[in-house]
């Protein structure tokens, strides 16, 4: 049993070495930050462009992680888990996009102002919850525990936001500042992890392929 657990731990370490580069923290942090900044501008629909950070992630992974960690094909069980993870996130992002679209349509129509306030408030809470659930899912699928902390941070920021509401700040801007704060913390956390990763895995220029 212990032997099985140790091999599992070894496999988990090999897996996390691929994601312990801080790039996921920075990418999701940038996404949340862009979302928050978009909310503070007049053109709130620009928040929909925040997903473009995936291009940053793909490019950074290729130029930073792969030359340092190398290539690996994980066990069939892990590959199955990766497929399940992809399916889950496709479904998750589709639902998120439809929720956003639903709120956008609801708020764009000529509904009474009082109802608009309620729908707007619901949209903000829904997106806070979506970010918390999304971060916890990243923590679960990628087996990186610090993402649970980021999820908790959004919850703490949401609770702190309740106090800020008391001081007369509009809920919309309070939520935007929450996202800006969380995004910034994630980016900073990611940069620290990235610095540690670069130190642990220096880039090896040629000469590493010397078998045979």
């Amino acid at each position: 049993m212990t032997q099985e657990m140790n091999l599992k731990e070894l496999e988990r370490k090999a897996w996390t070495s691929y994601f312990d580069d801080g790039l996921l923290d920075i990418t999701i942090g940038l996404f949340i930050l862009a979302f928050g900044i978009g909310m503070t501008t007049r053109y709130t629909y620009l928040t929909a462009l925040a997903w473009m950070v995936v291009f940053f992630f793909a490019a950074a992974k290729k130029s930073i992680t792969l030359p340092r960690v190398g290539l690996v094909k994980f066990s069939p069980e892990r590959e199955e888990r990766i497929r399940n993870e992809r399916t889950f996130f496709v479904v998750f992002f589709t639902i998120t996009a439809f929720v956003g679209l639903g709120f956008f349509i609801a708020l764009s129509t000529g509904i009474p102002r009082s109802l608009k306030t309620i729908v707007g408030g619901l949209a903000l809470v829904a997106y806070e919850l979506i970010f918390v659930i999304g971060l916890c899912c990243v923590a679960y699928w990628k087996q990186i525990r610090r993402f649970y902390v980021y999820g908790a941070l959004i919850l703490v920021a949401a609770l702190a936001g309740l106090f800020l509401n008391v001081f007369g700040l509009h809920q919309f801007f309070v939520t935007a500042y929450q996202f800006i704060t969380t995004g910034t913390v994630m980016i900073l956390g990611g940069l620290v992890v990235l610095a540690r990763f670069l130190k642990r895995y220096p880039k090896r220029e040629g000469g590493v392929d010397v078998v045979g």
């Binding site: 091999l7 070894l10 496999e11 370490k13 090999a14 070495s17 030359p67 340092r68 960690v69 190398g70 290539l71 690996v72 094909k73 994980f74 066990s75 069939p76 892990r78 590959e79 642990r200 895995y201 090896r204 590493v208 392929d209 010397v210 078998v211």
Partner: peptide
């Protein structure tokens, strides 16, 4: 052997730090 046992395949670079 332990590293290669827990995965399907890897390149030389992956095994160095592991």
């Amino acid at each position: 052997m332990a590293q290669l046992y827990i995965i399907q395949s890897a390149d030389f670079l992956f095994l160095l730090p592991q």
